[in-house]
Structure formats: C-alpha cells, structure tokens
Amino acid sequence: MSQYWDTEILTTCAIDYLTWQNYYSPGITEVAGVKVRRFSVEKPRDIKAFNHLSEKISPRFKSASIEEQEEWMQAQGPVSHELTVHIKQHHHEYDAFIFFTYLYATTYFLLPLVADKAYLAPLAHDEWPIYMSMWDTLFEKARGFIFNTVEERNFLKVRFPKINLEGPVVGVAVDSPKALSAENFRQIYKIDDPFLLYVGRIDPCKGCDELFSYFIELRKQNSTSRKLVLLGKPTMPIPKHPDIIALGFVDDQTKWDALAACDLLVMPSPFESLSMVLLEAWAVGKPVLVSDKCDVLVGQCRRAQGGLWYTCKEEFQVAIEMMNEHIRYQLGLQGKKFVETNYVWSKIEEKYLSLLNK
C-alpha cells in the first residue's frame, strides 16, 4: 500500500511472540522501502507466570472482572510505554491506523486511543480468550474491520451479535519466487521418497500431536514408502521415527522448494483465521489435506476445490491413499487457479483503497 499512501509500520523491537524479548534496535529503519518505527518492550513475558494466570482465568472467563482480564492482557503483552507515548503525541499526523490481530496488548490498549481512525484486522478464531467480555467494548470502538476469510467474519458475527461488523474479506496476496527447484530440495536433504509436508510452528495447538499419531499409524498400515517432512520451529517433542524428518526453521526459498517437491501439504491445525501456507501450496499447484476441526481451512478447500479434509485417522489414511497422481494434479490445478484469481496484489490493493477512501 506504500505505492498509494505515505505508510509507516509501528511495532516493537521483539521478534519472538512467546517472550517479547527486545531483538531489533529501537528507532526508524526501512524495510523494502517502507518506514518502520520500532519501540522497546518494557519487559520480557514471564511465560510461566502468564500460563499460570491463563489457567486461573480461562475456566471462568465469562465471570472474570474487567480488572482481572486487563491484568491478563498486561501479562500477555507486549507492553511498550514508548509506543503508547508516540501514538498519543502523534496520532493527529496519521489519517488511519490498521491494527493487526485482536489478541495482544498493542491492540487492546492502543486502539481506543485512536478509535475514530482505527480499523481492525482481528485474525480471530474460536479460542477461549475471544469470549472474554473486555473484547465487547474494544470491538465496538473500531471504525471498521478487515477480515481474512468469510468464516472468520461469520464467527465474529455470532460472537458479537450487537456490533456492526462492517468490512471486506481481504486476506493477503501470495508471491511465489520466479525459480523453484524440487530437485535441489530433494538432493540437499537426501529425500527420495514421496512425502507429505507440514509448514509452521510444531505445536500441539496446531494439531501436530494428532498429525504425528495419524502418520505413524498410516505407516504401520500402509506399505507405500513415504515421509512426513516438517518445516518450522518446534515447541513440543517430535517423535523419533525413520519417516519423520524435521528440518527446523528454513529460509523462504527452501520452503518454496519443499512445496514444489512434496506430494501434498498437510495442515492439521484446528484454529486458523487464514492459512497462508495453503495459498502458497496452491500457488505451486499442490493439493492440501486439512483437519475438519477448522471451519476456515475447510472453507478455503471448498472455495478453491484444492484439497480434502479428514475427521479421524481412518479418513486421514483414506484421503492420502486415494490421492493418486491424477487427483493430486487436478486438485492442485484448481487451487492454483483460485489463488491466481483471488490472491493477487491488485485485488488486495483495490479492497484496501476502497475501505479507506470511503
């Protein structure tokens, strides 16, 4: 959007959402020609204390006082006094503020300071924090909304029936590299067998424990040689299994080469507001397999006609077994057409321009 507007990004110096430890230097820098102002976080998050607080409040989120909820939000973070001061002192210099994700302190405490100019991209899904009553007031304050998917908007309309949730379904565009090399990926990591690919944080919250269980059972039942390749940072133990290959966090080109090399992408997460990696898989013509626990993922598959979904380990196994080369090609092709039609920058830009020009 910097092609159309004088654009700034206001953010913290953190790189890790678990600790909020300051990583970048505070001050102004440029990223891809866009001005980024970074502000120091007051203190890192005490994960143990925060988890303990969450365990106390989550069973009674409906009855917890606003004071208790805001104490939880302070512990959630990130809290930056310098960022707060900047917005208070300079809010008149900006025509609009777009806040990304409802869940963190930067949105909860700062959006009300500029409510008359504030648009919220909630990135929301069905999780216990969204049911805390403090969000009722926050969502009322936003001037408008930007949604990732139809399912996200529908969910929020049920959650906030009294709020006028006006705003477009936008998402983001997908930029695949000009050159992809499935062969390079296979050679570098010595992977000759067909493989399923998982990309993202390796975490029980993302359904990875279930994925490991289903895949190991599949390998017991099915004689076809195949691997499960994992790209991403683990926050849980990964089973020691000859067919599970964890490569850790990799650079962008390696991710795209892995997508080009895989048979299909598997996404077991029950909670998403939009899966970028589904769009990326379709951009290179690969089919996907998702958990039916996530309405967003199933909705993306339905609209794209680019994947299947499973409810249990038997359906997981059947879906993989039935995806022969022809079906994989057809699903991947349909997904590719869907992304090329809906997730290109010209379409995204048009929706943002229309929203703010109103």
Rank of each mutant, 00 (worst) to 15 (best):
Ala75Asn: 13
Leu308Lys: 06
Gly144Ala: 06
Ala283Lys: 08
Phe212Thr: 04
His125Tyr: 15
Asp252Leu: 09
Ser2Phe: 02
Glu151Thr: 05
Gln330Val: 14
Leu197Trp: 02
Leu165Gly: 00
Gln317Leu: 15
Leu53Thr: 08
Glu71Ile: 08
Thr12Asp: 01
Ile15Gly: 08
Thr84Tyr: 12
Thr224Tyr: 12
Asn51Asp: 13
Ile47Thr: 14
Pro78Lys: 02
Arg186Thr: 05
Thr106Asn: 12
Val41Ile: 13
His90Phe: 14
Leu278Arg: 06
Leu218Val: 02
Val79Gly: 03
Pro270Glu: 12
Lys157Glu: 14
Ala319Pro: 03
Thr29Ile: 13
Ile320Thr: 06
Glu55Lys: 08
Tyr189Phe: 15
Val284Asn: 06
Phe338Thr: 01
Pro234Gln: 05
Asp16Gln: 05
Ser25Asn: 12
Trp309Met: 10
Glu325His: 13
Phe155Asn: 05
Tyr198Gly: 02
Pro237Ser: 00
Asp136Val: 10
Lys233Val: 12
Asp16Leu: 10
Cys301Tyr: 01
Asp243Glu: 14
Gly299His: 08
Asp175Trp: 12
Asp257Asn: 07
Ala115Leu: 07
Leu211Ser: 03
Leu211Cys: 02
Ile66Asn: 09
Glu42Arg: 07
Lys88Gly: 12
Leu265His: 05
Asp6Ala: 05
Ala304Tyr: 10
Arg201Trp: 07
Tyr189Asn: 07
Leu265Ile: 04
Ser213Cys: 06
Cys262Leu: 03
Met267His: 14
Val31Cys: 09
Asn222Thr: 11
Tyr23Glu: 15
Ile87Tyr: 00
Phe155Glu: 03
Leu289Tyr: 06
Arg328Ser: 07
Asp251Lys: 07
Ala64Lys: 01
Arg302Asp: 15
Tyr94Val: 06
Pro161Met: 01
Ser354Met: 13
Leu278Ile: 15
Cys294Thr: 10
Ile146Tyr: 00
Ser54Cys: 11
Thr84Trp: 11
Trp128Gly: 06
Phe50His: 13
Gln300Asn: 09
His92Asp: 15
Asn184Ile: 11
Ala115Trp: 04
Gly167Ser: 01
Lys35Asp: 10
Val284Cys: 04
Val229Arg: 07
Val150Asp: 11
Leu156Glu: 00
Arg186Gly: 09
Ala260Asn: 02
Gly77Pro: 00
Leu113Phe: 05
Ile238Gln: 05
Ala121Ser: 13
Glu314Ala: 11
Lys35Thr: 15
Arg153His: 15
Ile15Met: 10
Gly144Ser: 05
Ser273Val: 03
Met276Gly: 12
Gln74Leu: 15
Ile130Trp: 05
Lys347Trp: 04
Ala281Ile: 12
Phe195Ala: 05
Phe145Pro: 00
Pro268Ser: 06
Leu53Val: 04
Val36Arg: 12
Lys293Cys: 11
Glu68Leu: 09
Leu156Asp: 03
Leu231Val: 05
Ala49Val: 08
Arg45Ala: 12
Lys233Cys: 09
Arg45Trp: 11
Trp256Pro: 00
Leu353Met: 15
Asn22Lys: 10
Gly232Pro: 01
Ser346Trp: 11
Met267Tyr: 15
Ile202Met: 02
Asn324Ala: 11
Lys88Ile: 09
Glu70Met: 15
Asp252Lys: 14
